[in-house]
Simulated scan of single mutants.
Amino acid sequence: MAEAGDRFRTGELTVIGRVSTASNVTLVCEVNTTGDAESDPIRVVYKPIRGEQPLWDFPDGTLAGREVASYLISEALGWGVIPETILREGPFGTGMVQRWIMGVDNHTEQGNRLDLIDLCPAGAVPDGFREVLRATDQEGNEVSLIHADDPRLQRMAVLDVLLNNADRKGGHALEGADGQVYGVDHGICLHTEPKLRTVLWGWVGQPICDGLIADVAAFASNLPGALADLLSAHITDAEIDALTARTHRLLAEPVMPAPRTARPIPWPAF
């Protein structure tokens, strides 16, 4: 396991593909083995900083740095929502490298199963799901945007509140083959101003479970000091202060908040 971790951090990256739908350069890579033919290659996502498009409302730091900071926060909470994410060198310079998640396939020849975040006919919300909004699809049909009423997904929604995630699309929540639910694409998080945009609004006004709040309380007590020092390599002091304020706000009122912006859903939603 230690050897695999070392390869993840320092092994040579070989580009095997590119995510063409991403707005910034997003490459799929494999980490070369160390000459051991029996070693499984490590698949990763690599986003070089030089491939980032500047954002006027996120002028400080880098998107890669924000992804790493988001991972550090998820780990400090003990939630493991975000796959292991580091900043390291690659074939196109320094960038974010994140472990690839092998997802489940809900659409097979044996039948279809709804994804964690999906669409259904308007008002026909199945058991175990929550409706977020109603809209019209490309064919003119009225549909409901829904997400699973799943504690693994709710934990991600709470993390997004703390991260002030401005881009939680449906495609950024992955159901892993290992049974975990993972969140990816955290490049526009941790702003000082309210920017939460998410498709996970189904729990608005609902109390957050005691277990998650206990984790947030422990995180709040540990945030000053070493953790803040780690985060300061990637985000500003003002952004760390804003993270602290969001954390204490959630502890003071432990319910899922309502939207505070005029555009609470990212576009596209998937």
Rank of each mutant, 00 (worst) to 15 (best):
E3L: 05
F8A: 00
F8I: 03
T10H: 06
T14Y: 01
T21D: 14
N24H: 03
V25Q: 06
D36A: 08
E38T: 14
S39D: 15
G51K: 06
Q53W: 05
L55T: 09
D57R: 10
P59E: 09
D60S: 15
A69N: 08
L72Q: 12
I73K: 07
G78W: 07
W79R: 05
L87W: 01
G90I: 06
F92K: 12
G93I: 08
T94E: 12
G95Q: 02
G95L: 02
Q98R: 09
W100Y: 05
I101P: 00
M102D: 12
V104N: 00
G111T: 15
N112R: 10
R113N: 12
R113I: 08
L114R: 10
P121T: 11
V132N: 03
V143Y: 03
H147G: 07
D149L: 08
P151W: 05
L153Y: 06
Q154N: 04
Q154Y: 01
R155N: 02
R155C: 03
V158Q: 01
L159N: 11
V161T: 15
L163W: 06
N164D: 09
A166S: 13
H172Y: 07
H172R: 10
E175P: 04
A177C: 10
Q180N: 14
V181N: 03
G183T: 15
T192I: 13
E193D: 13
P194V: 09
V199D: 03
G202F: 05
V204S: 11
G205T: 12
Q206S: 15
D210M: 01
L212T: 10
L212H: 01
L212I: 08
A218I: 13
S221L: 12
L223M: 08
L227S: 12
H234M: 10
D237N: 09
E239S: 08
T247I: 06
T247D: 09
T247E: 13
A252N: 12
T261P: 09
P264E: 06
P264K: 03
I265D: 09
P268N: 08
